[in-house]
Design a protein around this nucleic acid. Structure first.
Lengths: 369, 369
DNA sequence: GCACGTCCGGTAAGCGCTTACTTGGGCTGC
DNA sequence: GCAGCCCAAGTAAGCGCTTACCGGACGTGC
C-alpha cells in the first residue's frame, strides 16, 4: 500500500556485487582496486554487476581496512562573536580562508580526497579537543592561522601529518605562507619612493601572528632604511578584521591623534574597516590618508577607492598546503617536515594608495605639513 | 639516535585504553558512550586512562560499527571556468554557498557532525558519480542549487537522506529556500509604488533555477498588477554571476537597446556585474538606472552605490538545511520528506534603488521620457 | 540457607571492506 | 605422463570500534 519512498533500500555492499557476479568478494575488491590480474571475463562480470547495482564502496569500511580515509581535516579559526557590530553579521572575515579551502579542495579532488572543514572558536575551552576529534576522522590536518598552541600542535603532529598555513614550521610539521617579506617591502617602497609619503602606520593583525609579524618587520625595515616615521604598537592593532580596523581608527580619532599619511594594514579585511572609519569621519582616501591592504581578496576591487593590496594567489596557498600534506600522508613525511614554503606575492596598485585609477601609475603626492 | 619526529606513534586504540585501565574494551566503550551503568571506580579508571593516553576513537571504526559517520556531504556547484575574464580569478561567486555552509557547520558542530564539502563542475561527465562517491562517506547529503538531475536525485535519495537548497522537494527529499515570492514582491512594490518606476527588467539566473523562476514570476505578477512594463527573456540572463550580468548589459548596450528605469537582478553577484558594466558606460546608478540584487551578500553594502537587495538570513538557510537533514538521519524522515521549507526574507533599501543614503527613505524619482 | 533477580563487565560477533595466504587447475619441461 | 610452476580466485584474518549475549557476584525474600 505505502509507496515507500526514501532510504528504504540500503546501498548495496560488496557481497551483493559478488553474488550478482558469481564471484567472491575478494575478486570484486581486486577488480575495483586493480590488484592482481583478474581474467577478462571475471572483470567484466564484476564490472557489470557493479554498474547494475550502482555499487560504491562504503567509505568507513574502506577507511578502516585500508587505513586510509581519503579525508583531510581543515581547521579554520572562527572570529569571536561580537554582538551589535556593524560588521557582525557579515562574517566576511572568512572569505580569505574560504578561498584557500577552495584551492585545497580542487587539488584534493584530483587525489580522491575530500575536505572535512571545521571552524573553531578559540574562546571555547575545548577548542583543542575538537581538533583532535577531527583528526580521527582524517588522514591529515591543515591548520589555518595558528589555532593550536605549540604543545598541542606537537602532540597532534605525532599522530598524523600536519601542515600549517601562515604559521611557523616545527620539526614535525610543514608550513605554507605567502611571501610576506617581499610583498610588504614592495608596498613600503611604493608608498615611500613612488608616492613620497613620510609618515606611515602599520595596523597589525592578530597578536603573535607570524604573518602579521613578518609583514610588520619588513615594513619597519624599509621605513628605517628610508628614514621615514612608522607608527605601530598597541594603538595600531586591527586583529585582521574589519571591525578591529574600524575600532582602531575610531579610537585614534577620538583621542585626537594625528593620522599618518598612509596606513598600511596587515590584511584587506582590516583595511575595509579602516576605510569605513575614515569615510565616517570625512577623511579623504587617498588624498588625506592613503590605505593599503594585504591578500587582495575579491572585494578589494569593489571598494571605493579600490584597495591597493598585495596579491597572493590565495588558491595556490591552499593547493600547496594540500599537496604538501598529501605527500606526507603518502609517507614522504621526512622530505617536507620542518619546511617553510613561501609563495610569491605581487603588489597590486589601485586607488587607495594614491595611484591614478585609469593609468594605475603612481602620482607623486606632497605630504601635508 | 634519530630523534624521531612526526607520526611515529600511532594514535592509541581502545585496546590500549582497556589495558591501561585494566578492563575490557567493552567497558571502555560503555563508559565513553554512556551505555549501561558502569561502577564509579570503573568509570574513573577508564576516564583516567583515556585522559592519559589522549584517546579519541577512530572515526572510521566507529562509523562502521555504529552505522553512523557523523558526516554530512555538501555539494556545491562550481561555476564553469572562463579564461580571461575580469571576474575569473575572483571566484567570489562562491560567497553565497560558502556562507550557507558556514550556517550548516555551526549547527552541525552542535550535533557532533562535520561537513564534507565538495564542489562539482557540472560540465564534467562524471559529476553524478562524484556525488554518489561522496554519499558513501556521509550519513546524508545536502545539495546546493540543483546539481543532480531528477533521476539521479531520486536514486540518491533512495540510499540516504537528501536535502536540497533552492530546488524543489521530491517525494523523497526536502527542500529549503528563501521566501522568493515575498522578497521579490517587496522589491517590486518598492520600485513601482515608492519610486514610481514604470519600466523594469528582470535579469534572470541559471536557466531553470527554481529560485530564479520564482523570483521572476513574482516580479512579473506585481508588474502586471501595476500595469508596468517588464523586460525579460533571453537577453536578460545573468546566470547568477557577476560576469554574466556584465555581459548581458554589454550586449544590450552594444545592440543599442534602451535600458529600463530599473534592473532587478536575480541575485547580488549578477547585480555586481551590472553595476560594473553600467559604470563602464557612464550610466548613473540610481539616477539613470536603478539596480537591485537579491540575497544581500556582505559585499552588497560595500559597493558604490550600496546595493539594495533582499536579505535572506543566509546562515539560517544552511542551519535549517542541516537541521532538516539531521532529523531525517535520526529517522524522522517521513516527517519532513517532501516538505518545502521557506525562510523569511526582508527588503534592504540602500542606494542603488534610488533611496537616500542617509535616511534610507525612498525618494520619488520622476521617470525620464 | 537457598532460589531467584539484579547488575556489572567480559566475551565475541559483527560492521564492510582489503589483502595475506591458500587452493587448485592448467601449463611447461623432461 | 608426471613433477613442478604459475596464476587466478577463494578463504579467512583482520582494521577498531559497538553491542547482544552471557556468566558470575551480589542482594533480596522466604
Amino acid at each position: 500500500m505505502s509507496s515507500e519512498v526514501g532510504p528504504a533500500s540500503q546501498p548495496p555492499t560488496i557481497y551483493d556485487v559478488a553474488r550478482a557476479a558469481g564471484v567472491s568478494i575478494a575478486s570484486v575488491s581486486r577488480v575495483l582496486n586493480a590488484q592482481g590480474n583478474p581474467r577478462a571475463d571475471t572483470r567484466d562480470r564484476v564490472l557489470q554487476a557493479v554498474a547494475e547495482l550502482g555499487f560504491v564502496p562504503d567509505g568507513a569500511a574502506r577507511a578502516l581496512s585500508a587505513r586510509l580515509k581519503e579525508v583531510v581535516g581543515v581547521v579554520v579559526r572562527r572570529p569571536p562573536w561580537h554582538e551589535a557590530s556593524m560588521f557582525t553579521d557579515e562574517d566576511e572575515n572568512l572569505q580569505f580562508p574560504d578561498m584557500i579551502n577552495r584551492g585545497m579542495e580542487i587539488v584534493a579532488q584530483r587525489h580522491g580526497f575530500d575536505l572535512l572543514v571545521r571552524t573553531v572558536d578559540l574562546q571555547e575551552p575545548d577548542a583543542g579537543s575538537r581538533i583532535f576529534a577531527l583528526a580521527r576522522k582524517s588522514d591529515g590536518i591543515i591548520l589555518h592561522d595558528r589555532v593550536l598552541d605549540p604543545d598541542q600542535l606537537d602532540r597532534l603532529a605525532r599522530q598524523l601529518p600536519v601542515v600549517t598555513l601562515a604559521g611557523r614550521p616545527t620539526p614535525s610539521t610543514a608550513n605554507v605562507h605567502g611571501d610576506n617579506d617581499g610583498g610588504m617591502r614592495a608596498v613600503a617602497r611604493h608608498l615611500i619612493a613612488d608616492h613620497g609619503y613620510r609618515t606611515l602606520a602599520y595596523l597589525a593583525g592578530h597578536e603573535g601572528s607570524p604573518d602579521s609579524l613578518a609583514r610588520g618587520s619588513a615594513l619597519a625595515d624599509e621605513a628605517r632604511a628610508a628614514g621615514v616615521t612608522l607608527l605601530e604598537g598597541e594603538d595600531w592593532r586591527g586583529g585582521y578584521q574589519a571591525e578591529g580596523g574600524a575600532a582602531a581608527i575610531e579610537r585614534l580619532i577620538a583621542a585626537g591623534a594625528r593620522l599618518p599619511r598612509a596606513i598600511v594594514c596587515a590584511n584587506d579585511q582590516s583595511a575595509i574597516g579602516v576605510l569605513h572609519a575614515l569615510a565616517h569621519h570625512g577623511v579623504a582616501v587617498p588624498d588625506d590618508v592613503a590605505v593599503t591592504g594585504f591578500d587582495d581578496i575579491p572585494v578589494a576591487r569593489h571598494l571605493r577607492p579600490q584597495l591597493t593590496s598585495v596579491r597572493q594567489s590565495i588558491q595556490d596557498l591552499g593547493a600547496t598546503a594540500f599537496e604538501t600534506l598529501y605527500s606526507m600522508i603518502g609517507g614522504a613525511g621526512s622530505a617536507v617536515r620542518g619546511r617553510d614554503i613561501a609563495l610569491p606575492t605581487q603588489l597590486v596598485r589601485r586607488q587607495s594608495c594614491g595611484c591614478d585609477p585609469q593609468s594605475a601609475a603612481p602620482r607623486k603626492a606632497e605630504e601635508a605639513g
